[in-house]
């Protein structure tokens, strides 16, 4: 029962990504290709997701606590620094090279497409490398993930 809820939420997310077309790297890349075969669909994905999340969060975050946990876990970092900018720029580079972002690639696992597994293996390796780098930069202690 405890795991049924996250499973169901994941399924809704995965169906949303599939329905939206974000599971298809070609469609994602065509969104960025304004100078070529532009496909503006991704803007509609973002609009739909943002509208629902914006309104839903307004209602949910009024509560003192979530239903099944003692408290909300909201990101606390507000820093706009070199790490945020450099990291995001690097993410965009990889996204543009492949058409996969983490939230698009995880549902795509279910298609058993070998390219997805290769991308995700490299992504997980990158995340572990970054954790080690960040720990070194910080002089010890693992880097907390936010957002």
């Amino acid at each position: 029962m405890r795991l049924a809820l996250p499973y169901l939420i994941g399924l809704i997310f995965g169906l949303g990504i599939t329905l939206a077309g974000m599971i298809n790297p070609a469609k994602v890349l065509n969104f960025f290709d304004i100078a070529g075969n532009w496909d503006p669909s991704l803007a509609f994905v973002m609009a739909g997701a943002l509208a629902v999340t914006f309104l839903g969060y307004r209602l949910v975050l009024r509560r003192p606590a979530p239903l099944f946990e003692p408290q909300f876990h909201l990101p606390t970092s507000r820093a706009i620094d070199a790490r945020l900018l450099g990291g995001s720029a690097l993410f965009g580079l990889g996204w543009g090279m492949t058409g996969f972002c983490p939230g698009g690639a995880l549902p795509a696992l279910g298609t058993f497409e070998p390219a997805v597994w290769l991308f995700l293996s490299a992504m997980l390796s990158g995340m572990m490398i970054a954790r080690m780098l960040a720990a070194r930069l910080d002089g010890g202690g693992p880097q907390p993930f936010s957002a």
Binding site: P75, G87, S125, G126, S146
Partner: peptide, 19 residues
């Protein structure tokens, strides 16, 4: 795919999030 995947993994970790 491998180079892009590495860039995504390192980037989202330092950037603290993705799409």
């Amino acid at each position: 795919l491998v180079l892009g995947g590495l860039a995504v993994g390192i980037g989202v970790t330092f950037g603290g999030g993705c799409t």
